[in-house]
Amino acid sequence: MIIDAHAHITEAEYGSVDLLVKSYDKSGIDKGIVVPGGMVDVREMSLYITGEKKASQEIPNHVVFDALKKYPDRLKGFVCINPLEGDKALETFQAGISAGCVGVKLNPMSHTFAFSGNMLDTIADECGQRHMPIYSHTLFNPGASTTKYAEFAKKHLNTNFIIGHMGFGALDTHALNFAAKQKNLFLETSSACFLNLVEALKKTGANKIIFGTEFPMSTSAIELFKIDELPISESDRNKILFENISSLVPSLSS
């Protein structure tokens, strides 16, 4: 069994759900968790970082909701929420639950918020009660740093948190250390460099590492190759490829 814990899908063809499922078929991936993509056109990523292009503030959660209907046996979804939207954020959360979403995706880069404030606390508590993990990138910005994300996770011990791409930059030592220390913090492998994976294994063991692809920025085959290259036992490989994410999202096992 292989489960991809992190793929973006977009309305645009380059990131369509059909393309994703095709890549799963090709690489032998059984299931995947999808989040809405397209708020930034990742084919021009650097222009968003330099500020030449602005991220869309409209969250295309409907792309995920539609995908869940189209591929109910292959896909689960995380609903993306902007905590700065106030009551609308809670409405989006509820809409996600109604559509069958099993976790929450945060996007501090596009929505420019810190891991703080009452709205995020409310969402994190709700997620804890519903056994829904929270997934987020961490950034260089002080309020959305790996350290702040870990502090946020520490406030909500009943909720599980996934650090996207194993943290900020090429090798985020803070991310590895926090994941090793905090029970409810996990590391997702997509786009992470190989040495980062090796170091994470030493610090956290295989129990804290979750396989993801970051489709369409990367491919299933490329991301799987990194896991195949790791000098680990079959048991540890299984933890990374599907057991750990299945423990956070029980419905993946059904």
């Binding site: 905590p83 810190a114 404030g117 995020l120 910005n141 002080p142 309020g143 959305a144």
Partner: peptide, 17 residues
């Protein structure tokens, strides 16, 4: 209070605390 919380959350993105 909700608006102040929101502004705080947004500005802490840059300023940390």
């Amino acid at each position: 209070p909700e608006l102040r919380d929101k502004i705080k959350c947004q500005m802490e993105y840059i300023l940390g605390e």
